[in-house]
């Protein structure tokens, strides 16, 4: 067996070097221009659009969340407001009723008072009139007595009759 040494294995061949260099540079240029650029651009664009879509979706989601939160808040506020209004209305109604009762009471009191006053007045009037009448009657009776003073029996009879008349 003849051993074969590595002749040529580590030789750098100029012609091959030249061709490989030229070919590689040419294909690097061609591939960069016609293959890698459009592919990488397309991939970049796709990734960008996916990222943007995701971001937009996230944004829309957070917006929707915001809106629903806002709605909830508004609803709560509205409910609170309505409750407040109802309460106020109730209170007002209560106040009005109380006021009315008070007024009615006052009115009644007033009327009663007036009535009492009138009665008092009339009573006074009546008393005055009674006094007048009594004095007149007394004068009358006295005059009659004076007219017929001698007749005691008759006087007595006149007074009796007068008192009878009074009754």
């Amino acid at each position: 067996m003849n051993p074969v040494f590595a002749q040529g294995l580590l030789d750098v061949d100029f012609g091959l070097f030249f061709w490989v260099l030229i070919t590689f540079l040419l294909f690097l240029f061609l591939l960069s221009k016609f293959a890698w650029k459009p592919i990488l651009n397309a991939l970049g664009e796709r990734e960008k659009s996916i990222r943007e879509s995701l971001e937009a979706a996230e944004k829309a989601k957070s917006e929707a969340q915001d809106i629903s939160l806002k709605n909830e808040k508004v609803m709560k506020e509205a409910e609170a407001l309505s409750q407040k209004i109802r309460k106020e209305a109730q209170e007002e109604a209560e106040a009005i009723r109380a006021d009315r009762v008070e007024k009615a009471k006052e009115e009644a009191d007033k009327l009663l008072h007036q009535a009492r006053n009138t009665i008092e007045q009339e009573k006074k009037q009546a008393l005055i009139e009674l006094r007048k009448e009594v004095s007149r009657l007394a004068v009358e009776a006295a005059s009659r007595i004076l007219d017929e003073e001698l007749d005691e029996k008759r006087n007595k009879k006149i007074v009796d009759r007068y008192i009878d008349e009074l009754n």
């Binding site: 070919t23 590689f24 294909f27 061609l30 591939l31 016609f34 293959a35 890698w36 650029k37 459009p38 592919i39 651009n41 397309a42 991939l43 664009e45 796709r46 659009s49």
Partner: peptide
Amino acid sequence: AFLVFAIFLPLATKYRKGIGKN
């Protein structure tokens, strides 16, 4: 070199058309 070119040129055309892009 030819094989790489033959594979990636049609692929680039595909991407240019929008398949893989949109």
